[in-house]
């Protein structure tokens, strides 16, 4: 088996079972996550993406299908799911749902303590995690409740990183942040990945977030996987994405409009840098 870190195998999950409002949140979902990948998981609200990520660390048990991690079925009886949650670190959208300690340092220690590390190791990994997410030293002894929204989110990410996960799953990490906070957080994640080779799954409904950074995009709609491909290929389906309430990045639309207006630009560009290049090229050719 060549490097298949995590396999989602025919996942099906339903909410409100046994009532007249059964919702099929996941409908036969299959994919593979390989070590070192940077994946964007996108979908409209209610597309099932949050449900899906809660399966990755076995918080939810699928009605049928299963998850294999390192080749082992995680829903099998006797599988150590607590250890799995250390390896597949899931950071939820709202840091308010998990901050409870008196200081940032204690907060970040919670995860590694649960993982059963000894005190010295706990403190070392916690400190390292706080540094990795770029929190200043003076935050360490502050109450996590006194921090700004962006900093709280960093604490939440640090508290998961402190468990030394192999896969880091971030559920809407940029929701509710201002543009500056958003850029800072995303570049921090990119840096983490480059420095430590950690596998990252970024859940988002913002195309701008994912287009610029990820290597592969999984698009979900109504509990099914619609596309699973490299960003350029996914965003070439701009019309189909719009039909399910998503969109391609704004620069892609500009390029398409330019093309329609007679400029010879490459419409597959998805980032600002790519757009700039192709537009400049088109302009120089014209003259």
């Amino acid at each position: 088996m060549e490097d298949m870190k995590l396999i989602a195998d025919h996942l099906v999950y339903e909410y409100n079972k046994g009532t007249n409002q059964t919702v099929r949140a996941l409908d036969d979902v299959n994919f593979v996550i390989r070590t070192g990948e940077f994946i964007g998981l996108i979908g409209h609200t209610g597309s099932g993406k949050s449900t899906l990520v809660q399966h990755l660390n076995a918080l939810l048990k699928p009605d049928s299908g299963t998850i294999y991690y390192d080749g082992a079925d995680v829903f099998e009886k006797g599988y150590d799911r607590k250890a799995l949650r250390g390896k597949v670190g899931l950071v939820f959208q709202y840091p308010e749902h998990q901050l409870f300690e008196e200081t940032v340092f204690k907060e970040v220690c919670y995860g590694p303590i649960n993982m059963g590390l000894d005190t010295k190791e706990v403190e070392m990994t916690a400190y390292a995690a706080i540094k990795r997410v770029g929190l200043p030293d003076e935050c360490i002894d502050q109450s996590p409740f006194d921090l700004s929204g962006g900093q709280k989110r960093r604490v939440a990410i640090a508290s998961v990183l402190a468990m030394k996960p192999e896969i880091l799953v971030l559920d809407e990490p940029t929701a509710g942040l201002d543009p500056k906070g958003r850029d800072e957080l995303l570049s921090m994640i990119v840096e983490l990945r480059e420095k430590e080779g950690i596998t990252v799954v970024l859940v988002s409904h913002s195309m701008e977030d994912v287009a610029e950074y990820v290597e592969r995009i999984i698009v979900m709609d109504k509990g099914k996987i619609l596309y699973d491909d490299v960003p350029k290929a996914v965003f070439s389906h701009a019309e189909e994405l719009e039909a399910i309430g998503l969109a391609a990045p704004q620069v892609t639309y500009i390029l398409k409009d330019l093309k329609a207006a007679g400029f010879d630009v490459d419409t597959t560009g998805i980032t600002l840098a790519e757009a700039k290049e192709t537009i400049l090229q088109a302009l120089t050719w014209k003259h």
Partner: peptide, 16 residues
């Protein structure tokens, strides 16, 4: 609902 979410967030951090 909130309790459910909080419990999940802490479970994800290895709570038992």
């Amino acid at each position: 609902d909130e309790t459910d979410k909080i419990m999940k967030a802490q479970l994800a951090r290895g709570a038992d």
